[in-house]
Nucleic acid binder design. Structure first.
Lengths: 233, 233
DNA sequence: TATTATAATTGATATTTATCAAGCTTATTC
DNA sequence: GAATAAGCTTGATAAATATCAATTATAATA
């Protein structure tokens, strides 16, 4: 494992307060691997053997059932994912695949549990991360149950615009069909939702979005910090 | 606080491993209160000042937005709820109200956080409970995004039937309009979903449901342990 | 027991969303 | 640069769900 990657993982809030001895024990028994886009990392229903950390690239968490498939989350660096299954020594509820060339750190699940039992600071960091994940999922449930597809898209664009800080423009970091799956609609319906937002000052061409009237979009979207604000550490 | 209630809370897995000194510190500064049905306990957006535990009765966690309202969870005894907001010292993302006459224990949030910092066993119990909550929310997202209303109802009935163990019969523990909100549909649409399930051997009158053909219902529902199995401790 | 209130059902209609197919645009490969 | 593949848009139609209103059934109250 490269020192540079190790440093980036070390600085992750989840690991930042872990004592040195514990971290030094985990590093040599973990694997850091490079994957191209589209590689299957995890299958729902599989036993959670590793804690995965996205060091570079991005990962899609998705789920299937009743002949359908949906995107539950999109993981950007540097972030661990699906801690819950690891901590409870259970099966994964979601599958994962790389969206682009990605470097993934895999730490054996047993070692994570052992470290958590002896390292109080790590245990508390775990509590914060799990609480963050729980709140994030609650916001997803609210977004899905309380809003139409166009409303979810409008709010997504407002958040992305806020994060990118590029006056009036938003660049989607992935294909539109992935955004559709994430928002819980078909690609055709996402296209129609974009069409609907034209009357609220939104123009788009492929992954480039232009917001010509921010206040009109806000009015349409009715954003709420209890749904839209990304959960921080 | 009655000794009997104290004992029931003590036996909750979240508190069962807490050391005696810590538990003895929390008990005298907590409040146990009796509420009639329909009482507003928590408002989304409010600062999380207490950890709430349902000792008796039941509590609905709901959320509002865009002029709509939905039920996110229904809490039965003995269970704590919305730990995440308490642990991170943040606002509640959900509101709560009693569904029936209920006894609620309220433990000051600051004391919970302090105890977690010093009591390793309690911290680890917290990790398990938050992981359980996270997984439960993931299942809710999957249920909502991957299934139709009739499918969600069918699976709900299968789980309830399994839990009640009453050969071919299920008694809904609350009104149908609450079940509708929980499943993410209007009361009218829930009624139509029940109608749809008649061809799968389901009859109902008010809160009493009869399942005349379990295998037909299973076939229609396509249950999955990755969605339907209630998350245990 | 009768009356009133509430919950649930049913009908009609509107809206949202999915499905299917075809065409267009853009990216990739040779 | 041309051909091919993939992503996206658009049109038509079907299905799912919401809304609104009226009726029926059940529970609560007097």
């Amino acid at each position: 494992m490269r020192d540079q990657d190790l440093e980036r993982v070390r600085r992750l809030p989840l690991f930042a307060t872990m004592d040195d001895a514990g971290f030094d024990r985990l590093a040599p028994i973990s694997y850091l691997q490079q994957f191209p886009a589209g590689v299957h990392l995890i299958s729902e229903g599989d036993q959670a053997d590793f804690l995965h950390v996205v060091v570079e690239g991005s990962v899609e968490l998705y789920a299937t059932g009743n002949g359908r498939e949906t995107t539950v989350a999109i993981i950007q660096p540097v972030t661990a994912f699906i801690l819950a299954a690891v901590l409870k020594d259970m099966v994964y509820l979601m599958s994962a695949r790389t969206l682009e060339n990605s470097r993934i750190l895999m730490i054996p699940a047993g070692s994570i549990r052992e470290t958590m039992e002896t390292d109080t600071a790590f245990c508390q960091a775990m509590v914060r991360e799990l609480a963050r994940g729980f709140r994030s999922m609650v916001k997803t449930v609210k977004n899905q149950k309380l809003r139409t597809a166009a409303e979810r898209l409008a709010n997504y664009l407002l958040v992305a615009h806020e994060q990118q800080g590029t006056g009036g423009q938003v660049k989607l970091p992935f294909e539109k069909r992935l955004l559709a799956a994430y928002l819980g609609v078909t690609p055709e319906n996402l296209s129609r939702a974009f069409k609907t937002l034209e009357t609220s000052g939104v123009r788009n061409s492929r992954t480039m979005i232009h917001i010509d009237d921010l206040s009109a979009l806000r009015k349409m979207a009715q954003p709420s910090p209890l749904i839209d604000t990304p959960e921080e550490w």
